[in-house]
Simulated assay, not measured.
Amino acid sequence: MTIISACGRLKEMPLPTPDDPACTAVVRERLAAERERWIRQLDDTTRWVIDNVVTYAAGWPLDELRSISADCAVQSRMITLSERTEETKVELLGELAAATQNILSTYWWRRVSHHHSDRAQLAAALARLAPDPAS
């Protein structure tokens, strides 16, 4: 949820352009500092997720759920460490976290009724992380 929330805030509150007459230099500086705090929050959270995956993933009752948990922890951290733009990182982290949450952090009846669509959403998010074979 922390990743989803931080990504949502970063998407919804872009930094105003320097020539925006509705935004003073002081407010722009404060917004930039707040956005930087949210970026650090993503870094801290993905670090915690990867550092603690052994502890929380082991608690899932199915191998598939343990595997999804571990894979998404690694992928989230790799997105954060990558050289992608901030905008791209936020988009990818948000997609991956939402897809993972739909599978891992939901009621069992939703898991049953949305099994295929949730896995398709996760597969699509992970496919966006694969290297481009044309490059």
Rank of each mutant, 00 (worst) to 15 (best):
D71Y: 09
T45I: 04
D20Y: 02
G59P: 04
L81E: 11
A97H: 01
L96I: 04
D43E: 14
D19Y: 05
A70P: 12
A25K: 14
V49C: 11
W48Y: 15
T55Q: 13
V27P: 02
R47W: 12
D20L: 05
R110D: 15
I50L: 15
S76T: 07
L81I: 03
D19C: 05
W48E: 13
E34R: 15
V26D: 11
R111W: 11
Y107M: 15
L42S: 07
E95W: 03
A98M: 08
L65W: 10
R110Y: 11
L65A: 11
W108K: 13
A58Y: 03
V74C: 11
S105C: 12
A70V: 14
T100D: 01
E29N: 08
D63N: 14
L42Y: 00
A25P: 07
L81T: 05
A57P: 09
I50V: 15
A57N: 08
L42N: 01
Q41D: 07
R35V: 06
T45V: 06
T46F: 10
R37M: 09
S82Y: 02
E86N: 08
A97L: 00
E95L: 11
V27D: 01
S113Q: 14
E36T: 03
T106D: 04
R30P: 02
R40L: 15
P18F: 03
A25M: 10
E86M: 09
T45H: 13
T55P: 01
R37L: 14
S67A: 14
T24S: 15
E87S: 12
D20A: 13
W38L: 13
A33T: 02
E64S: 13
N52C: 08
S113L: 15
V26F: 05
Y56L: 14
E91L: 01
E87G: 09
E91G: 01
N102K: 01
R30W: 00
E95M: 11
R66M: 09
P21W: 06
E87Q: 07
C72G: 06
D20E: 03
V27K: 12
L104V: 03
A70H: 13
E95V: 05
I79L: 04
S105Y: 11
L96G: 05
V74K: 10
I39P: 07
A25C: 05
E34W: 13
V54S: 14
V27A: 10
V49G: 10
L92H: 09
E29H: 06
N102W: 07
P21E: 08
N102F: 05
V26H: 04
P21C: 13
A32D: 07
W48N: 10
L93F: 03
T85K: 06
A73K: 01
T106N: 02
